[in-house]
Design a protein around this nucleic acid. Structure first.
Lengths: 114, 114
DNA sequence: CTGTTATATGCCTTGACAGGTATATGCTGC
DNA sequence: GCAGCATATACCTGTCAAGGCATATAACAG
């Protein structure tokens, strides 16, 4: 598993990363919040740790995991050239997202275009 | 293959997307430039097309592929919360370094957001 | 020391996906 | 129509990673 993209391809890993945005969490908390078996959590955390997405510190019997920045920046760098390209096509994106996630309300001030 | 992240997890697909940043390309050109067997190119293009990363138009016997914007911005949206997180770290680091080495000029790519 | 909680690891099975090769489809010009 | 080029698809196979379950390690409480 070499690239950061393979790491974030896994939905459960993205869920874990999402949890850690707010604050550091113990394995048990992640297990509880994501309703995910403990070995699964540990294994994904291992992958994330070895890829540099997270780091852990010991707190008694617990281990607290928190995010690290670098791999995210790697994604950011890859994305950069495409950003220049897509910024002219914003309207199409909104239609696209509306199709993919019909429930998600776009919280934009509805300036009634179209 | 449901999420955009699984799509871009494949190195050859990222290579194809990279090629298309500059301009649209035919299958044969991609095949030539990436030194990749033609069926492989076609298969990856199919995946990319079905995921909305590219679209094609017919030009005689050739098909010209070009990028589409939406899926990239989906990645962008996922990345956004983490960007907030890491940029504060970077800023903190810069302040730290500024105190330590007041003479050092920060030659950073101008981070155009926030 | 013993039991209990928290986390990590090992083993096995299963499924998905990428590559290779062959072949099919489609368009063009004669 | 046929020949030739460009692209797509079908089929097969190997690989690899994720999940389930059992078990190992580690730190704490008593």
């Amino acid at each position: 598993m070499d690239s950061v993209f393979e790491i974030i391809a896994e939905p459960n890993r993205r869920a874990i990363l999402g949890l850690l945005v707010s604050s550091e969490q113990s394995v048990g908390e992640i297990e509880r919040r994501l309703r995910m078996p403990q070995p699964t959590v540990s294994k994904h955390l291992r992958v994330l740790r070895e890829a540099g997405f997270v780091e852990s510190t010991v707190d008694a019997q617990r281990r607290l995991y928190r995010l690290k920045a670098e791999p995210f920046q790697e994604v950011e760098e890859w994305l950069a050239p495409f950003r220049r390209f897509w910024s002219t096509h914003v309207d199409a994106l909104e239609r696209h997202l509306a199709r993919m996630h019909p429930s998600t309300s776009t919280k934009r001030k509805t300036r009634s275009r179209r």
